[in-house]
């Protein structure tokens, strides 16, 4: 028990930016579901089991256009394809995690992934439980935010416009930390350039999958130079 307390204590400060981001975005999702007349139970169901913010917003749009199960399934695979990259990135990090491994895998969102990319487990804390509590806390924030939004949705109106920027800020900070820690900057540059090029060519709503393909092609083609400079 003492170990768990220490792990929670160590994990909590790292999750504060995500707390604010998830409460805001989660409640926006809850409010949206509520405004479309979808019962609160399904908001809870989605936030516990889907737990992928952008896809959950897409489900509302999908339901508004009609009932198409196969279309929804295909859309899910496309919107969430980036999870494949997170999984591949964490194949080594998530080995030897024991019984909590499935939960770590299923709760790997953009934000949890980014955080776990950059945090260092403090000495004396079990790495496995440190990762677990970061993942669990974030999951709880998201569920809380969305249910809160679903409940107070119609009652309260306050201007939260712009608050979602905390997540942009989080990614920027992690990008800078990674940049400083890495000796080899080619992968970071490849990521930014590929995404910018694909955003310009394919537009704002369809550029993630092309970006992933371009990233994969680029790092494969310049594997030699990258490996010569070291990949860590």
């Amino acid at each position: 028990m003492k170990n768990h307390k220490a792990a929670i204590k160590a994990a909590l400060p790292h999750t504060i930016p995500i707390l604010s981001g998830y409460i805001v975005l989660g409640s926006a999702y809850g409010i949206l579901m509520n405004s479309k007349g979808i019962p609160l139970f399904w908001t809870l169901f989605s936030s516990v089991l889907i737990y992928a913010g952008s896809m959950q917003f897409v489900t509302v749009a999908l339901l508004a256009t009609g009932f198409d199960l196969i279309g929804a399934f295909m859309m899910t695979l496309m919107v969430n394809a980036r999870h494949l990259f997170y999984g591949i990135s964490f194949l080594q990090k998530y080995s030897n995690m024991g019984p909590i491994k499935p939960y770590l895998i299923l709760s790997l969102t953009d934000e949890t992934f980014s955080l776990l990319c950059s945090v260092k487990t403090p000495t004396g804390i079990s790495e496995k439980w440190f990762y677990f509590y970061i993942s669990l806390l974030n999951h709880i924030y998201w569920i809380t935010g969305s249910v809160l939004g679903g409940i107070i949705g119609g009652l309260l109106r306050f201007d939260t416009h712009g608050l979602e920027f905390v997540l942009t800020a989080l990614f920027v900070v992690i990008f800078i930390s990674q940049w400083k820690a890495a000796k080899n900057h080619i992968p970071a540059i490849v990521g930014v350039l590929s995404a910018v090029v694909c955003r310009l060519i394919f537009g704002a709503s369809d550029f993630i999958i092309p970006s992933m393909i371009l990233i994969l092609l680029s790092v494969t083609l310049i594997r030699g130079p990258i490996e010569r400079r070291g990949t860590k």
């Binding site: 990259f85 591949i88 990135s89 992934f113 990674q178 992968p187 930014v192 790092v219 990949t231």
Partner: peptide, 22 residues
């Protein structure tokens, strides 16, 4: 795949920053 798992984290964070600013 091991090579990918080493370099992808750096590329994806860059992609996520662009995604937020899309």
């Amino acid at each position: 795949i091991k090579y990918l798992s080493d370099v992808l984290p750096y590329t994806i964070i860059g992609m996520l920053v662009v995604y937020c600013l899309k």
